[in-house]
Structures are given as structure tokens and as C-alpha cells.
Amino acid sequence: MKKIILNKGKDKAAWQLHPWVFSGAIKSTVDHPKNGDIVAVFNNEDEFIAYGMYNAKSRVAVRLLEWDPSKEINEQWWRARVAKAVNKRLALLNEENDTLRLIFAEADFLPGLIADKYADYISIQVHAAGTESVKDIIVDELVQLLHPKGIYERSDLKSREYEGLPDSNGKRYGEVPPEFVEIVENGIHYQVNIVEGQKSGFYCDQRENRAITARYAKDKKVLDCFCYSGGFTLNAFRQGAQSVTSVDSSALAIETLKSNVQKNGFAADKHSAVQSDVNKYLRELGEQGEKFDLIVLDPPKYAPSRSTLEKASRAYKDLNRRGLLLLNSGGILATFSCSGAMDIETFKQVIAWAALDAGKEIQYIYQFCQPEDHPVRASFPEGEYLKGLLVRVV
């Protein structure tokens, strides 16, 4: 097998089961490995560490797969890994939830692979050259395990460019999903656009957080910012919200949200759907003297890397300051960050600064995290990206 030799002192993370070997850690290669090849990784003393997928074009030059030297990375290895990831999630499926993440990349020892189940369809994303080479095997194993109506690929990620891969979108098995696939989450029905929607179609990582936040919505005036297809909005209505205003910059998101409100039989006269830049809309609400009892702030990723964290912190602070200014005394703010570069302690400090600038005294009453189908592997803390806080204005 083709080999990778690491520089002296650059093998510690790999021994500790971290799945990434950066290009700067590599001393030499043996037998000219090509991008996507399976390689054996050794330390400077020629001791075997692990098998992995090589890619000279990527900053992450090797994505480690297996630390047992007796194992062979073949078709059966890939099938077994896919089956293990899927089978441990099946207990999460029931009549109230038919949508979840089946495979979460490095967290499931399957680097470069995301798979989400939306009712009878599966959406996959592949963002590593080595995983791309076994995509057909992965698709076939998912078919054998779950018998979906169709599997659709949405591999149009920036990370593929770094791997030297072109975008790859389209049907990989069975039927092309219809324009809207109906799913159920927390007993609520949604229409999901797998083919053209954001990411792989729906943000199932907020499933539990939506239900927790909705506990505070009964008889309350709610503002749901960055609402997308309405997860927090619909959960709030299900728990008896007095009214909900939902805001998103996407016209498709707003139209989908309106359809979801109607599909679930919630009163349209209690709902206001606004297509607008959220920060601009929050300023306008402040100028109008509007107040709310519960506000949800679930923005896109402001800090894609540590180099952008300082700028992102200012953006998070300003956004949350505007939100806090709109809350009644005793009001609740559910605020989130999906930036992996921002840890929860930093996020708490940012919210504290926002409260100080808003002249509000606050309490942290709950800390949100990722659900069970988005696990965080102990040896790969980078997989922990979603965090949030439930904040009460005193």
C-alpha cells in the first residue's frame, strides 16, 4: 500500500484518533499516491498509525479512517461503516419524526460524507475525493438498509473545490424527489425542497431545540428571525402562540413557510411572514416601538474559520443587541450560532456584551446543543458546531 510518512513530532493527534492530517505534517510520500487513494500513515520511526484517504490538493492531506492495521479498507469496510451509522439512529424514527441525519461525516468515522433522511427520500453530500470514489457503494448500501424511493445528491459545497472536485448534483437512485417532499418533525408537517433548498433541504439539527423553545410560546407574541421553512414558527404555533412574525431574506423560504402554516392548519391571521434582511427589519421594529415576548435568532454561519471570529463576534453582538431591545421584561431570547469556530463560552460572552449595550439584565436559563443524530466524537471536537442559549430578560 502507498505510504505517508509524518514529520517527527507531528503524529500526536493521529495517535489520539483525530481524523485529520494536515499537509504541513507530512515528511514524505512513498509510491506516489494519487488524490483519493487509500494510504497507510506512519510516524517518523516507521510505526504504523492508521489508514486514510489522501489528497495533495487539500489542506487536510489525509482523512484518517481506520487505526487497526489488520483491517482492509475495501467495499465491505465501507458498507459496514455506513450500516453502523444508520442502524444506531433507527430508534429515533417514529410517527412524529421521519427525518434525521443518517451519517455525520467524521463523527461516524466516514469523513467527507453527509446523509439525511427526509421521509422516503435520502439526500447525500460528498466533499472528499476518497469518499467520492466509493459513492456508488455508499448509495447501494443505503438502498439495502432503508429502501428509499430515491437518493439525491447535493454536492455543491465549497469544500469540493479544495478537494479538486467539481460540483455533483442529481439523482443517484430511484425517483427524483418531487418539488416538495412532505416530512414530519415533532408531529409537524413540512414541505421540503431537497433539490433546490438550502444545504441538503432542511435543518434537522434544530429538531430538539425547536421543541424546547416552543415551551415558552403559549399565549405569547413571537418573532422568528432567519425562519427558513418555519421550524421555530410552527413549533410555537403548535404550543399555542398568540401570534408569530417570521422573517427571512429568501422568497422561496417565505413561500414554503406560508404553505407549511396552512398545511398544519394554523390560523393565517395570527401569522405574519416578512421577506427582509433581518438586521434591517429589527431596526425598523425598534423604530416602531414593537415589543415581543419570545424572539428566536438562528442566523447563518458568521464565523466559517477562526480568522473570521472577531468580525463574527461583532455581528453576533449587534444582532443580539437588537433582539434584546425588542423584548418585554421577562421575555425570552433563543439565540444560536452554527459557527464551529465559536465555542459556547465565547458565545456567552458575546451575548453578555449585547445585553450590556442594550441596557438589559439577563439570565442564561438553558444551553442548546446538537441532537443525538449529530454526535460529537471525543477525538474530533471540531464536529461540535451548533450551540445556543435560552436567555431571559430580568
Rank of each mutant, 00 (worst) to 15 (best):
D277E: 10
A303T: 11
L282E: 07
S249H: 04
L282T: 08
D277A: 01
V247R: 00
L294H: 08
E255H: 14
D269G: 00
A303F: 07
D269N: 15
A312M: 06
K301P: 01
S272Y: 02
F237S: 08
G265Y: 10
E290K: 15
D298A: 04
S307F: 06
S250N: 11
G323N: 12
G265R: 12
H271G: 02
A236N: 09
F237R: 03
S250W: 05
R238L: 10
Q262E: 14
L252F: 06
L325C: 09
S305E: 09
Q288I: 01
I295V: 14
K280Y: 12
S305Q: 09
D248Y: 05
S249Q: 11
S276M: 07
K301T: 15
Y302P: 02
S259N: 12
A253D: 04
P299R: 02
E284R: 11
L327C: 09
N328A: 04
A268L: 15
G265I: 03
L319K: 00
S276Y: 09
A241F: 06
S250F: 05
H271I: 06
V244A: 05
K258A: 11
N264M: 13
D269R: 00
S250M: 08
N279G: 13
V261M: 09
S246I: 06
R283T: 03
N264H: 12
D277W: 04
R314M: 09
F237H: 08
A251S: 12
D318K: 14
R283F: 07
Y316Q: 05
S250D: 07
I295R: 04
P299N: 07
V247A: 00
N320V: 11
Q242A: 15
S249W: 00
N279F: 15
